[in-house]
Amino acid sequence: MSRIAFLGLGHMGLPMALNLVKAGHEVHGFDLVPAAIEAAQAAGITIASSGADAVAGSDVVITMFPAGKHVISAYQDELLAAAAPGTLFIESSTIAVDEAQAAHALAIAAGHRNIDAPVSGGVVGAENATLAFMVGASDEDFAAALPLLEAMGKRIVHCGGPGLGQAAKVCNNMILAVSQIVVGEAFVLGERLGLSHDALYDVAANASGQCWALTTNCPVPGPVPTSPANREYQPGFAGALMAKDLGLALKAIEQTSTDARMGRLAQELYATFAAGEGGGRDFSGIITDIRDGQV
């Protein structure tokens, strides 16, 4: 079993770290937020005095940070220098492709190994160890990381070399965002045409309109009892996070000169949604702004 430094013990990071403990690994955690440290201690995670302290003596370092700038800064300021030679760094934050590649280059230059392994599946997936991991790595490093990823997730896909895990994540979330918007639009249109939510759901869920945004994250109460719509759009996956991920998609669209009009529009709509009350609500809650004509 491995000694693992887990840095970033928020809503996603803490249950991921706990699943590694359940799998028999020795986990030393750290977070800059006192409330996150308190929650991790209460859950039984060993807390280090700093990120560098957690990394020292660890075989593997997993980071789950808010943005790419935090990853690069942490790598440069303390983590890479504190790690033993050849330490495997697993970067599971959702960051830009070029930031993932920059982090990889920094780790390699410091004598370490690095993979990007962003996740999909939300807090429920993190708690139940059913996350999907999209991995950018060499074949050797992917094989080394696989047992750890399998302790936290159900589906692990090797997407290619460094940065390509993040590339898959940004493309996937662009698909999801566009789907969630159009599902919301369809329900609002159905309401105004006199269709009940159940009738529209029963048709679309069993016809060509079927998609995850409908059958799992249904944006209206009733048809899918476990969807955020049945708990007043408590996330789940917050609108602010979707807006952030679409910002990464927009950056990639512009860097590659891709004609992605739906992706651009989704980014615009979610930026508006997140700037209002939608920032802390589940991203499926954008249907309420669609109803009110606010996006």
Results as ranks from 00 to 15, higher is better:
Asn217Gln: 13
Tyr233Phe: 15
Ala213Ile: 08
Cys218Val: 11
Asp245Ala: 07
Ala240Val: 01
Leu246Tyr: 06
Cys211Leu: 10
Tyr201Lys: 06
Ala240Tyr: 00
Tyr201His: 15
Val220Met: 03
Ile253Asn: 04
Leu214Tyr: 00
Pro225Glu: 07
Val224Ala: 04
Pro219Glu: 00
Pro223Ile: 08
Asn230Phe: 12
Gly239Arg: 11
Arg261Trp: 04
Leu195Arg: 06
Gly247Arg: 13
Gly190His: 08
Ala252Glu: 14
Met262Pro: 03
Ala186Tyr: 01
Thr226His: 10
Glu191Asn: 11
Leu241Trp: 05
Thr258Gly: 09
Ala207Ile: 05
Gly263Glu: 05
Ser227Gln: 08
Asn206Glu: 06
Tyr201Asp: 02
Asp198Ile: 03
Pro235Glu: 05
Ala252His: 04
Ser196Trp: 02
Leu241Glu: 00
Thr215Ser: 11
Gly190Lys: 03
Thr215His: 01
Gly236Val: 10
Ala186Glu: 01
Tyr201Leu: 02
Asp202Lys: 12
Gly239Ile: 07
Leu193Thr: 01
Val203Ser: 02
Ala240Gly: 09
Asp202Cys: 00
Pro219Gly: 04
Ala249Thr: 15
Cys218Pro: 12
Tyr201Ser: 03
Asp198Trp: 09
Gly194Arg: 06
Leu214Ser: 01
Ala240Cys: 01
Gly247Asn: 07
Phe187Gln: 04
Glu254Asp: 15
Leu241Thr: 11
Asn230Cys: 12
Pro235Thr: 04
Pro225Leu: 09
Gly263Ser: 09
Val203His: 00
Pro235Ile: 08
Gly236Tyr: 10
Cys218Glu: 03
Arg192Phe: 01
Ala260Ser: 14
Gly209Cys: 06
Asn217Arg: 15
Leu200Ser: 06
Pro225Gly: 05
Ala243Ile: 02
Cys218Ala: 12
Ala207Asp: 09
His197Gly: 06
Trp212Thr: 08
Ala207Gly: 10
Ser208Gly: 12
Gln234Ala: 14
Glu232Ser: 09
Gly236Leu: 00
Leu214Asp: 00
Gln234Asn: 14
Ala249Ile: 05
Cys211Ser: 15
Gly209Pro: 08
Val188Trp: 00
Gly239Asp: 09
Thr215Glu: 13
Pro235Trp: 12
Leu241Gln: 06
Ala243Val: 06
Tyr201Val: 03
Tyr233Ala: 07
Gly190Val: 05
Pro223Ala: 09
Gly239Lys: 09
Glu185Pro: 10
Asn206Thr: 13
Gly239Tyr: 08
Gly190Met: 03
Leu248Pro: 02
Gln210Leu: 12
Asp198Gly: 14
Ala249Leu: 07
Val188Ile: 15
Ala260His: 12
Val203Thr: 08
Ala240Met: 05
Thr215Met: 02
Ala204Glu: 00
Gly247Thr: 09
Ala199Leu: 15
Ala204Tyr: 01
Gly209Arg: 04
Ala229Trp: 02
Ala240Ser: 13
Pro235Asn: 13
Ala238Cys: 03
Val203Arg: 01
Asp202Thr: 07
Glu191Arg: 12
Ala207Pro: 05
Pro228His: 10
Pro221Val: 10
Gln255Pro: 01
Gln210Arg: 15
Gly263Val: 12
